[in-house]
Design a protein around this nucleic acid. Structure first.
Lengths: 129, 129
DNA sequence: GTACTATATGGAGTTGGCTCCAAGTCAAGT
DNA sequence: ACTTGACTTGGAGCCAACTCCATATAGTAC
């Protein structure tokens, strides 16, 4: 699979993909004789991992650290577990903050729907809503 | 309430608070004769709004746009509703991506717990887990 | 009033994560 | 073989959101 295919598959640019490889967020990708990247299934699953975690806000640095530990072999199971656990904890916090913001927005939106309807904006909670 | 109190209350720096005011993510805060910021309840709720939305990843620019519309008065109910709805939609996507990443991490963590226990890392789903 | 700490301002600097560019190489079509 | 378009590299540039700094003024304790 070429870099272009991978880009399309994951909705990211070739530059981003090369950048991830450069900083180690994915392991080195195999090349053709000509030096062109060829993504196999394993490479793809690394890309998927990186893209998924990045979308959730995990830093490129943390992802790269995981890859580094992975490449060091079986001695690093615990270190990897620690790393993943810490990141998981962060995402838990992030999830709580996101939920809070969603609630805030939903509340405001409900008030503005009413305001658009009635011409008056109120922040009072009313009965029967 | 002084800027320091507000910082402590929300866990952000004074610089950030001044920055939010400068770019309009919160309305101008009242000052003492000497020019020192004095946050009243209304100012506090604007700060809370900004902090909550920022933590969820809403851009400073979007928050400032909301404040701008707010200051324009009742003519902008619909514009504000549109803005909030769009941001709400973004947060919905973000929530889905975050949840996906959490699931990924939880799965990996479960595998690594087993690996630390047994010395062998496997990615096979097993019966009875 | 003096000393000391907090705050104000404008503007420069930093960081993370891309994003773009130049110059060159590779691959596919004709 | 030649053209055209995709891919390569190293490195520069960009943007959002802070973060830091220098200098000056305000408030507080004694």
């Amino acid at each position: 699979m070429t870099i272009k295919d991978v880009c399309e598959k994951f909705g990211i640019t070739a530059d981003t993909l090369r950048y991830y490889e450069k900083v180690g967020a994915i392991p080195k990708v195999g090349r053709s004789q000509g030096g062109i990247r060829e993504y196999d299934d394993e490479a793809l699953s690394w890309v998927q991992n990186a893209v998924c975690l990045r979308k959730a806000g995990v830093s490129v640095e943390a992802i790269a650290e995981y890859v580094r530990l992975f490449n060091m072999g079986d001695e690093t199971f615990e270190a990897r577990l620690d790393l993943l656990s810490k990141e998981r904890e962060e995402l838990g916090k992030q999830l709580a903050e996101l939920t809070e913001a969603v609630d805030l927005l939903d509340w405001k939106i409900s008030r503005y729907r009413k305001a658009v309807e009635t011409g008056v904006l109120t922040w009072d909670k009313e009965e029967g809503e």
